[in-house]
Simulated assay, not measured.
Amino acid sequence: MFPTLPADGAARRTPLPVFQYDDVDSPGDVIDTLLLTDFVTGRQPWARTVRLAKVRRGVVLVPERATVTRTAVERNRAARLATGDGWTLRVVTWRGRGAEVTVTAVDEATGTAVLDEIVTAGAEPVRPGTAPIGFWHQDPRRGAQRDNRRIDTPVWSAIRPNYPAEAAAALDALMTTTPETITGRLLLMHGPPGTGKTTALRALAHEWRRWCQVDCVLDPETLFGDPAYLAEVAVGEDDDGEEGEERTRWRLLILEDCDELIRGDARERAGQALSRLLNLTDGLLGQGRRVLVAVTTNEDLSRLHPAVTRPGRCLARIEVGPLSHTEAVDWLGVPAGVPAQGATLAELYALRAGTATAGAVPVEIGGYL
């Protein structure tokens, strides 16, 4: 038990808390615990955590005046604990140059000054043509986790020629959607692999950046199989948005390659997963949540479950197919190698590079889905 803090926030007595460890805990877990010591006792009652999508090369995120008291290097991350005058710092860095910085301090002014210094020195400058996207996954030990990364987001007008006329027209309408024109919460994009579905969604992140935060769920099967995980993602986390922009009001959850979740026999195959998806888009779970869900699939629209495609549920249902022969020739600039039935975007890129012939191109997953 710890003493009650008086009105001025200072503890009358500040005994060290007692923590227990076992063989499940790692050195990094010990650092996480040690960070909390002064916060729990009230000696440093202010705390804040910031995540950096990308850290400048060579920057350690620990001020020179700090004293490093613990370092733990593990398989895919490194953690450091450091102290300064009235503050304590924990820095966790990952293999991909992402980082999490937590500061506890005697007051907000002290902690904010240290945190701002670290972020200013360590955060890699924002590259033009990129946007922040959150990536959700379920960690067996820590529960729902969201990592924020910046990815390339093309301008729609620059990639519009990559799509057949009918799909391009439908995407035109989608790209210009605003909160005032939303008529459904579910976005379906279907078509063969290699036609540009993922690229279109990256462009959508750019076009909607002023009013919508984009998140990608890496484990959709787990999401709809675990109510606690689903509830956490439905509540979400807010990004601060781009400089000069208003705080995000809507969120778009991207679920890629979810054929089994939404096909006609989904209820038999996936149990409650389909019901939970529909509940997120227009059921009780979705009420009060400004959440849109984008699902990509290789299935034909006729094979999808009727509950998914019913009128009023979908903001858009867009088939992204191959370019026709004429469109493919226009895109490539020469007719050589283009089959009479047309070609997918992936096939045309392969033809342009001279690495394959249309109709026999092995599609690289995640390239132009």
Rank of each mutant, 00 (worst) to 15 (best):
E299K: 11
C258A: 15
T71D: 09
G225C: 06
D85E: 14
G271K: 06
N298I: 04
G98A: 11
L52N: 09
L252W: 08
L204M: 13
P125D: 11
A158E: 12
L278G: 01
K197E: 02
G359L: 15
T176A: 13
W46Y: 11
R313Q: 03
L16C: 12
R267Y: 01
L218V: 04
L201N: 10
R247Q: 08
L52Q: 12
G111R: 07
V126W: 10
A353G: 14
T281W: 01
A353H: 13
C216W: 00
T326N: 00
T183K: 13
P45T: 01
N279W: 00
E124T: 02
G129Q: 11
V60T: 14
E364P: 07
G9H: 05
T37N: 10
E207G: 11
T296L: 07
C216K: 14
E117T: 09
L369A: 01
L171M: 15
H206M: 14
F19N: 06
R263N: 09
I151R: 07
G196I: 07
L277G: 01
V233Q: 06
F135N: 07
G111F: 04
L369W: 01
L348W: 15
A7M: 12
H190L: 03
L81Q: 05
I133F: 10
Q341E: 11
T102I: 05
L201A: 11
G288T: 15
G134P: 13
Q145A: 13
L277S: 02
C212K: 02
A343Y: 12
Y368C: 05
L292E: 04
L323C: 02
N76V: 07
L261Q: 14
V40R: 01
L188K: 04
A66T: 12
A10S: 09
A105M: 00
Q44K: 05
D152T: 13
L201H: 11
L218R: 13
V338F: 04
V60K: 08
T181G: 06
H137K: 03
C216G: 11
D107P: 01
L187F: 08
D152G: 10
A346N: 05
V308P: 03
T110D: 00
G58E: 03
H206Q: 13
V329T: 15
P15G: 09
G366I: 04
P45E: 00
T4I: 07
T67W: 03
A270G: 05
W94M: 07
G9A: 08
V308S: 01
E242N: 04
N162P: 07
A165Y: 03
A336Q: 15
I31C: 13
A158K: 11
V126H: 07
